[in-house]
Amino acid sequence: QETIEVEDEEEARRVAKELRKKGYEVKIERRGNKWHVHRT
């Protein structure tokens, strides 16, 4: 599992979309004022 930390929701969604295109399962999680995209 890989976690990518980004600054805002828009970027989290963009990253998640790219990963989904490559066939990964992803989960977006908010952590305080950061966003984490988990590749599962």
Rank of each mutant, 00 (worst) to 15 (best):
Q1G: 11
Q1I: 15
Q1T: 02
Q1M: 01
Q1A: 02
Q1S: 05
Q1W: 10
Q1K: 15
E2A: 10
E2M: 03
E2G: 15
T3L: 15
T3W: 06
T3E: 03
T3A: 11
T3D: 02
T3F: 13
T3R: 14
T3C: 13
T3N: 10
T3H: 15
T3V: 10
I4Q: 02
I4D: 00
I4Y: 10
I4W: 03
I4M: 15
I4E: 01
I4S: 01
E5C: 06
E5N: 12
E5T: 13
E5F: 12
E5P: 15
E5Y: 07
E5G: 06
E5W: 11
E5D: 08
E5A: 15
E5M: 14
V6T: 05
V6D: 00
V6C: 08
V6R: 13
V6W: 14
V6Q: 07
E7D: 15
E7I: 14
E7L: 13
E7W: 11
E7A: 15
E7C: 08
E7V: 15
E7N: 11
E7F: 03
E7G: 15
E7Q: 15
D8C: 14
D8M: 15
D8K: 13
D8L: 15
D8W: 05
D8F: 12
D8S: 14
D8I: 14
D8Y: 08
D8P: 14
D8T: 15
E9T: 03
E9R: 14
E9D: 12
E9G: 11
E9V: 14
E9F: 10
E9S: 12
E10G: 14
E10L: 12
E10D: 12
E10P: 10
E10Y: 12
E10S: 12
E10A: 14
E10Q: 14
E10R: 13
E10V: 15
E10K: 15
E10C: 10
E10I: 11
E11P: 11
E11R: 14
E11H: 13
E11A: 13
E11C: 07
E11V: 13
E11Q: 15
A12G: 08
A12M: 06
A12E: 00
A12K: 00
A12D: 00
A12L: 02
A12Q: 02
A12W: 00
A12F: 00
A12S: 06
A12Y: 02
R13P: 00
R13D: 01
R13T: 11
R13E: 02
R13W: 02
R13H: 14
R13S: 05
R13N: 05
R13G: 07
R13V: 03
R14N: 01
R14E: 02
R14V: 07
R14A: 05
R14G: 09
R14I: 05
R14T: 02
R14Q: 08
V15H: 11
V15Y: 02
V15D: 01
V15W: 08
V15A: 08
V15R: 05
V15C: 13
V15K: 05
V15G: 05
V15E: 04
V15S: 06
A16I: 02
A16C: 02
A16W: 03
A16S: 06
A16R: 04
A16D: 06
A16V: 04
A16E: 10
A16N: 01
K17H: 11
K17E: 08
K17L: 10
K17C: 11
K17P: 10
K17D: 03
K17V: 06
K17R: 10
E18I: 01
E18A: 03
E18W: 03
E18R: 06
E18H: 00
E18L: 04
E18F: 07
E18S: 09
L19D: 08
L19C: 06
L19G: 11
L19V: 04
L19R: 03
L19W: 13
L19Y: 01
R20W: 04
R20K: 04
R20G: 12
R20I: 02
R20V: 08
R20A: 09
R20L: 04
K21M: 11
K21W: 04
K21E: 14
K21D: 15
K21I: 04
K21G: 15
K21R: 07
K21Q: 11
K21Y: 14
K22I: 07
K22Y: 00
K22H: 04
K22N: 03
K22C: 05
K22M: 05
K22W: 04
K22E: 13
K22V: 07
K22A: 07
G23W: 03
G23P: 03
G23R: 06
G23Y: 03
G23K: 01
G23D: 15
G23A: 09
G23S: 06
G23F: 01
Y24I: 10
Y24F: 02
Y24G: 12
Y24R: 06
Y24A: 12
Y24K: 06
Y24L: 08
Y24S: 07
Y24M: 08
E25C: 04
E25V: 05
E25G: 08
E25M: 09
E25I: 07
E25R: 08
V26A: 12
V26Q: 02
V26W: 06
V26M: 05
V26R: 01
V26C: 04
V26D: 00
V26L: 05
K27I: 02
K27N: 01
K27E: 09
K27T: 05
K27L: 07
K27R: 12
K27V: 07
K27W: 05
K27M: 09
K27A: 12
K27D: 12
I28G: 01
I28Y: 04
I28A: 08
I28L: 12
I28P: 03
I28F: 07
I28M: 10
E29W: 06
E29L: 06
E29Q: 11
E29H: 04
E29D: 10
E29M: 08
E29C: 07
E29Y: 04
E29V: 09
E29R: 07
E29I: 10
R30T: 09
R30G: 11
R30A: 12
R30S: 06
R30P: 08
R30H: 06
R30F: 13
R30Y: 05
R30V: 07
R30I: 03
R31H: 03
R31V: 10
R31D: 05
R31S: 12
R31L: 08
R31T: 05
R31P: 03
R31G: 08
R31I: 14
G32E: 08
G32N: 00
G32V: 08
G32S: 11
G32T: 02
G32R: 09
G32F: 01
N33Y: 01
N33D: 06
N33L: 10
N33P: 04
N33K: 13
N33Q: 14
N33T: 06
N33S: 12
N33G: 12
N33I: 00
K34M: 05
K34L: 04
K34Q: 03
K34V: 07
W35M: 02
W35G: 00
W35R: 01
W35Q: 04
W35D: 00
W35C: 02
W35K: 00
W35V: 05
W35P: 00
H36C: 15
H36M: 12
H36T: 08
H36D: 03
H36L: 13
H36E: 09
H36Q: 09
H36K: 11
H36A: 13
H36R: 07
H36I: 05
H36P: 00
V37K: 00
V37D: 00
V37G: 00
V37E: 00
V37L: 05
V37R: 00
V37Q: 00
V37W: 00
V37M: 01
V37I: 02
H38W: 09
H38T: 13
H38S: 12
H38G: 12
H38L: 09
H38N: 07
H38C: 15
H38I: 03
H38P: 02
H38R: 10
R39D: 01
R39E: 08
R39N: 05
R39H: 11
R39K: 04
R39S: 09
R39W: 09
T40C: 03
T40K: 01
T40N: 05
T40V: 01
T40G: 07
T40S: 01
